[in-house]
Simulated assay, not measured.
Amino acid sequence: MGGSTWNSSDWDSFSAKTNTQSTAQVFTQRGMPPHLNPLGVRMRESRDSAANPESHALVVGVDVTGSMGKLADALVRKGLGVLVEELLARRPVKNPHIMCMGVGDANGDSAPLQVTQFEADIRIAEQLSEIWLEGKGGGNGGESYHLAWYFAARHTSIDCFEKRKKKGYLFTVGDENCHKVLSRSQVKRVFGEDIERDLTSEELLTMASRSYHVFHLLVEESGTYDSNVKANWTKLLGERALPLSDHTKLAELIVSTIQVNEGASVADAVKSWSGDTSVVVARGLNGLKPAGAAGTGLVRF
């Protein structure tokens, strides 16, 4: 997928409509749409095309449990436009192909993972608005962000890596811990697959990291977020666990994270934004270094 190009006028029309609507009017689903269900999906593909000759895969998985539905809402109203248009203007990577995910809790949610196609045009926003904001989760100390890692590792095929050995980007966004284990029964229920044993979050991260640069944005505004959540994510991801002090700026932080990971300095990335945005980006980038830089404390897959 992803054979078309971004048109700013299409986004302007889409945004003009959503900005006059409530969250319930934008996200009208009352159950998981079949085309977003990962059950039985063999592969989501990001392929080069005449319109996108050097496609680069980008996955954004947002928590849709409890109050975190505001993340998808912020993206669909403004964030996606910022994300795509700033990536196209700054060009840290060429021809972005974007997949959105809704992430919940495999321990109890009916739809713990929802996945769009990789797209390069307004269909990114259209498919995001079809995600079901289930709004459950909570009460067990974590969410199943590692479902996004499993799907990316096992069920995506991306030309940027397969043809050019350039890893895609995978961002999850939320305020909770990542559950430590993805069980065999959960994999069977969510994906319809039989695996030999349970998988730890560390194993799933390693799997996804073979073809993706993996990051997590920690939403600091939530009452669920605390120092223990930060410590657990830092232990798992190191500097790639990025604090997000304002959820409405998640697109800007993603853009500059990609810039820095592709070689730009943190100082230059921060200076490229103004006002409150630069403050949020500066806090988020924290000690981030480009991929392969020495002294990061991370194993680069």
Rank of each mutant, 00 (worst) to 15 (best):
M1R: 11
S4W: 10
T5I: 12
S8L: 00
S9T: 14
S9R: 12
Q25Y: 06
F27W: 03
R30E: 11
R30T: 15
M32Q: 15
P34M: 09
H35N: 12
H35C: 03
G40C: 08
V41M: 04
V41E: 03
M43L: 13
S46H: 01
D48Y: 01
A50V: 14
S55N: 09
S55K: 03
S55W: 00
H56N: 12
V59Q: 05
V59E: 04
D63K: 04
V64K: 07
V64C: 04
G66N: 06
G66P: 10
M68G: 07
M68P: 12
K70T: 14
L71S: 03
A72P: 06
A72D: 07
D73N: 14
L80G: 01
L83I: 03
E85N: 14
E85V: 10
L87H: 00
L87V: 00
A89M: 06
R90K: 14
K94I: 08
K94V: 13
V103S: 07
G104P: 05
D105G: 10
N107V: 06
S110F: 05
A111F: 06
P112G: 03
Q114S: 14
V115F: 05
T116D: 08
F118Q: 01
F118E: 02
E119I: 09
A125W: 02
A125F: 05
E130K: 12
W132D: 12
W132S: 11
E134H: 08
E134V: 09
G138K: 07
G139L: 09
G139E: 12
G141I: 07
G142L: 05
Y145P: 15
L147K: 08
A148M: 07
A148F: 09
Y150F: 15
I158F: 00
I158M: 01
D159Y: 02
K163S: 11
K163G: 09
K163E: 11
K167M: 09
L170R: 02
L170F: 06
F171W: 05
F171N: 04
T172C: 10
D175F: 02
K180E: 15
V181L: 11
L182M: 14
V187Q: 11
K188N: 13
K188E: 14
R189L: 08
E196D: 15
T200R: 01
L204W: 03
L204I: 05
S211I: 04
Y212F: 15
H213F: 13
F215Y: 14
H216S: 07
L217W: 01
L218P: 09
S222N: 01
G223M: 14
D226Y: 09
S227W: 00
V229I: 15
V229H: 05
A231D: 15
A231Y: 10
A231I: 11
N232W: 01
T234P: 07
E239S: 13
E239P: 09
A241V: 09
D246Q: 15
H247T: 14
A251E: 04
A251C: 03
V255I: 08
T257K: 00
Q259N: 12
Q259C: 11
S265G: 07
D268W: 00
L285R: 01
N286M: 03
A291K: 08
G292W: 05
